[in-house]
Design a protein around this nucleic acid. Structure first.
Ligand SMILES: [Mn+2]
Ligand SMILES: [Mn+2]
Ligand SMILES: [Mn+2]
Ligand SMILES: [Mn+2]
Lengths: 230, 230
DNA sequence: ATATTATTTTAGCTTTATCTAAATAATATT
DNA sequence: AATATTATTTAGATAAAGCTAAAATAATAT
């Protein structure tokens, strides 16, 4: 006899609530556990007043803990819910790139809409159809149906020392502008790189890509490229 | 030198407005050109008061002609817009059945959400990916990007005479209940059929399917099966 | 021609998600 | 410690999409 475990999330959020929860979750992953109203406001491009309103609703639905004036924390339920939205977002991104030949800089906005389609069977079948991918086109890990994430250790490229090498596994910034820049210079997920030189003065780097091409980049660019050191 | 023609629809409707427009368009295709508030109300499962409100908005955006108390007509712009939503709905249905192994009775609700995703490139690529299908899983024609529809002549099965034959090309009712019933008895799009007998009393029929199986069905069922007579 | 019924619209209310402006709490500076 | 600044919340508005109840209009039946 075999007991199967199910994730039952009885909470039902609107698309707007889902977007806010995702933002809070992402902000909470960047170091500090408690997220401020203003942080959320700039992330969501809405006014702080709107954020306060929304936080009340999210606290009501128990996906965040909210202490007025002191910021918010995502609850366990909230984390599970957020990870399911992230799962859907990233699976759709894979679909768009792998099946519909979208470029990696074209998928974010569309996935931002697709992630809100409510159909458990849809996402399960999509996952199957895509062959259970573990990473999205930007190298971000895709949580499984239970919310478990296989994280790869990764490091901003600017933190490598001269002669350190590795492989590009993700980008921190997924904006179209940045991704198109990477396309242009020939940096891509999976590329093998080695730091040839680092300029003391401004932190810019000289990088060898795939043992073929050398490439100069500013510290700011390098900080948004994540590598698996080898 | 070559001039390309574009369809430029500058109108932007909300999802709710799109759903109403589609309903008005579908009702206007069923015979009478002018559609009443009550018809729309029962189609949309909303109250007539809500319909009146919405009609004002749709008239404002010039997708319908609206004479208070006398019903509505879809404008040329409205037809083009409606056909684009229908195109998206049916392409997504094909995707769900062909690629994600959905049953034909499981696709409608999800497509009802997917059809509102706004991305011209998405739908163009999806169409390409699916091989420019001409019909959806229920046999309904898929309008092309200009709104042109390749209509097949089709006839309700109950209107065939004894010994008439043909091929099932579509269903009029796409409800899960009806489709599952057809699955059970083995009627499917593409099946070759022949009318073996018609009962005078209640209009029920005896049908030969694929020269193999005989099948009895009520007039009501037959009226919802559309055939291409041969 | 008028009265009755059915249909449709209007008026006014609710919820969600946004905003601006005003109030208040927390933090920083003298 | 008092005051100034910044962050956050509250109050009050608006727009979308629905509702109910009441009023208006059209269709029909007498
Ligand atoms: Mn989103
Ligand atoms: Mn991504
Ligand atoms: Mn819809
Ligand atoms: Mn269909």
């Amino acid at each position: 006899m075999c007991f199967q475990s199910y994730i039952v999330i009885m909470i039902r959020l609107t698309s707007a609530e889902e977007n806010y929860l995702k933002a809070v979750y992402h902000l909470s992953q960047e170091g500090k556990t408690t997220v401020s109203t203003n942080d959320i406001s700039s992330e969501m491009k809405t006014k702080p007043a709107s954020v306060s309103d929304m936080l009340r609703k999210l606290a009501e639905k128990e996906v965040i803990d909210y202490r007025k004036y002191y910021g918010v924390n995502v609850t366990e339920n909230g984390k599970k819910y957020a990870l399911q939205i992230i799962r859907k977002h990233r699976l759709w991104e894979v679909f768009l790139v792998e099946k519909l030949r979208f470029a990696w800089d074209e998928v974010h906005e569309v996935a931002e809409e697709l992630e809100h389609i409510k159909s458990p069977i849809l996402i399960q079948r999509l996952d199957e159809y895509l062959g259970h991918p573990k990473f999205d086109p930007h190298g971000d890990p895709i949580p499984d149906e239970y919310g478990d994430v296989k994280a790869r250790p990764r490091l901003p490229l600017n933190e490598l020392a001269i002669n350190d090498g590795g492989q590009i596994v993700a980008v921190k910034d997924s904006s179209a502008a940045f991704l198109r820049y990477l396309d242009k210079v020939g940096a891509y997920i999976g590329a093998r790189i080695k730091v040839l030189d680092k300029v003391e003065f401004d932190g810019s780097l000289e990088i060898l890509v795939d043992n073929k091409k050398t490439l100069f980049m500013s510290k700011d660019v390098a900080a948004n490229i994540l590598v698996l050191q080898q």
